[in-house]
Amino acid sequence: MTNYLLRRLAQVVPIALGIMTLVFSLAHIIPGDPAVQLAGENAQPEDIARVRTQLGLDDPLHEQYFHYLGSLARFDLGTSFRSGEPVSAQIATRYPATIILAIAGMFVALSVALPLGIVAAVFRNSWIDNVARFFALIGVSMPSFWLGPLLIIAFAIHLEWLPVSGRGEGLKSIVLPALTLGLPLAAILTRMIRVSLADELGNLYFTAAMSKGLSRRAAILRHALRNALIPVITIVGLQIGSLLTGAIITEQIFSWPGLGRLLIQSIGARDYPQMQASVLLIALTYILVNLLTDVVYAVVDPRIELE
């Protein structure tokens, strides 16, 4: 197990380095000179030159690159071109908001998908199974940037139950963003759980458990469900990654002050350091979550060959 963990960790390092390099090069090929933007509309050439020197944009590219990697190693994410504040301070306030949103989205997804998927599998071809299938179908094709506005129209504008956007009203403000982020995932998971559990219910061990006198309910909960959930764990893990990227759009819809919104704002402002840091952090979190999923998967299912 320790060996496996170390090896998986070792695989993450080159990928992380690759991503840092990619992020660095991306931000430096963007057309448009940030110094020109930063110096203001009426800036003289001298002003622009001064800003360029201040930002280190005049150094050779490879020096900028090693300087960038060196700073990352010290957890120094640079200074925002726009606000002049350290990017790490910005990130520190935005990152938790995104994580909270992702967790809330996953909560929505699981609390819809688990019961719906299980009931649909147990009562196959019943009306509830049809409801589950229809929900899965719609959910998979519905873009979140449409679902969000529809929810706003229904629950914020017409019913006036929930706020339109922002994070000002505590728990109430996270409901619509979490639904927008979580429902499409719930659709995928419902389908997964339904298929996976239905497969297990056809297995001999399930029949055996029932024939030794276990009630159908107990046999499902104690035997079939446990096995059925193993593949679901992988999907859940992989989807946490997609929740992070889905959050970029959801945060934009609801003006949720997270990392995704910061990313889009910094692209508009050509704020390189802030943009680099947001992309980097989203990507690194994504990789780490995938790593964690693999590990959890290996722990949960002893049949999985770690070598």
Partner: peptide, 13 residues
């Protein structure tokens, strides 16, 4: 290894 839509956003940016 890189989330698709994030890469697309970065590339288009």
């Amino acid at each position: 290894a890189f989330p698709g839509i994030l890469l697309a956003i970065a590339l288009v940016a």
